[in-house]
Amino acid sequence: MSEKLYLYPVWVRLWHWSNAILFIVLIITGLSMQYSGTEMKFIRFDIAVAMHNIAGVLVTFLYAIYILGNTITVNSKNYRIREKGLIGRMIKQFRYYSYGIFINEKPPFPPKKNRKFNPMQLVSYVIVMYLFFPFLIITGFGLLYPETIFPTVFGISGIQFTAIFHSLLGFFLSVFMLIHIYMCTLGEKPSTHFKSMINGYH
């Protein structure tokens, strides 16, 4: 593409990379706590707890910035979803990923101004950022301040309930990250999207 598109404003890039780093810290410390044991000492339990708490609070601040940014800046235009024909467009995109891409078809929804995401990207980002992520943060804070949690939920300990949800969500998001990173290699060149996310231009 000769014409350069400025798609990722500075704040998005800063948000994104700090978020990614913190997220990796959260995943590693989270796993290390979940699989803590007397014999395996990957990260000492209390250190893992402290790191996880700090990273969690920071990621919450970043999340607030993300929400704020996508409410008041033009970046929000990229997150608009036209529901009409959405399924059809998603199928089209899916067909591209699972077939067209191998026979050098052109991507059906190339990034353009105010529509930088293709339909599948868009839906997955919205679900992740507006459903999973807030829920992950809420459950996380519940565990940080357990006195705010209801003592029993569905007959089992409220903390337990919250903790299971928290780990499940963390798990989903880590799978999302895996797929997300791979999907980002599907640009014109495998490195295209990563460069965009660094210098802002597509």
Binding site: M33, Q34, Y35, S36, G37, I156, S157, Q160, A163, I164
Partner: peptide
Amino acid sequence: LENSYIIGANRN
């Protein structure tokens, strides 16, 4: 598990 969730002690 019935009574509390102890990180690392109860996994499914």
